[in-house]
């Protein structure tokens, strides 16, 4: 494996823990994509090592995506945000976003909010999906209700109900007339979650 020595990062890529992560070979999941897995990821420095590997090691795109998945699974939001800043390819950005699902800070929320403006519809949908697990995501999800892609609107509509964002009720109502039945289903269900009585009056 070819990797470049970094002087910009304080991270010691030659430590045993780091080397263990850097030497990890991805496996093929049953879904077909690659995944890094193993005890090396349990080490406290594993997240840093993954971030370093993603930033500095030249690897095939599907391996980079596997590294991104592993980094996301650590839940280390700061490292994920740094990684997003250095990655353009959707196949790497996409897996990284899940690493912000359990965070609750403004910076990670802003990163997800920014992703809702991506040119890439799958990234916008993934951002909306991740936001749906965050209690602080109400306004961002309302923004996504106006997305041109129905899969993004539907995901956002679903999320507003999941996080009980009452202020999103009125923004959901127009989606009952959406051309896409999945969007309508999610909007209807979320309205019900937010205020069943008001939702019933709309039907």
């Amino acid at each position: 494996m070819l990797f470049l020595l970094s002087t910009a990062l304080a991270f010691d890529a030659t430590s045993p823990a780091a080397e263990a992560v850097l030497d990890m070979e991805p496996r093929t999941t049953r879904a077909g994509f690659l995944k890094l897995q193993g005890p090396a990821l349990e080490h406290p420095d594993a997240a840093e090592a993954l971030a370093w590997r993603l930033a500095h090691v030249e690897e095939p795109l599907e391996v980079q995506a596997a590294v991104a998945r592993a980094l996301a699974a650590t839940g280390e939001a700061e490292l994920v945000i740094d990684a997003l800043a250095g990655q353009d390819h959707p196949e790497v950005r996409g897996p990284l976003l899940d690493g912000l699902r359990r965070a609750d800070d403004a910076e990670s929320l802003a990163a997800l909010r920014a992703e809702l403006s991506s040119d890439h519809v799958d990234l916008r949908m993934e951002a909306a999906r991740v936001l749906s697990y965050r209690a602080d995501a109400g306004p961002a999800l309302v923004f996504a209700l106006y997305d041109p892609a129905p899969e993004v609107r539907g995901t956002a509509a679903r999320g507003i109900g999941w996080i009980d964002y009452d202020a999103g009720f009125d923004a959901l109502v127009p989606l009952l007339g959406d051309a896409d039945p999945e969007v309508v289903k999610h909007a209807d269900r979320s309205l019900d979650r937010l205020d069943a009585a008001r939702a019933a009056e709309l039907r």
């Binding site: 359990r102 749906s132 697990y133 209690a135 679903r158 109900g161 999941w162 009980d164 269900r189």
Partner: peptide, 20 residues
Amino acid sequence: GYATVGDILEDNGLMNYNEE
């Protein structure tokens, strides 16, 4: 990423997702 039973039950997104 779930250390306890409570962590699972308290994940509203996860619970809502499963119900749906």
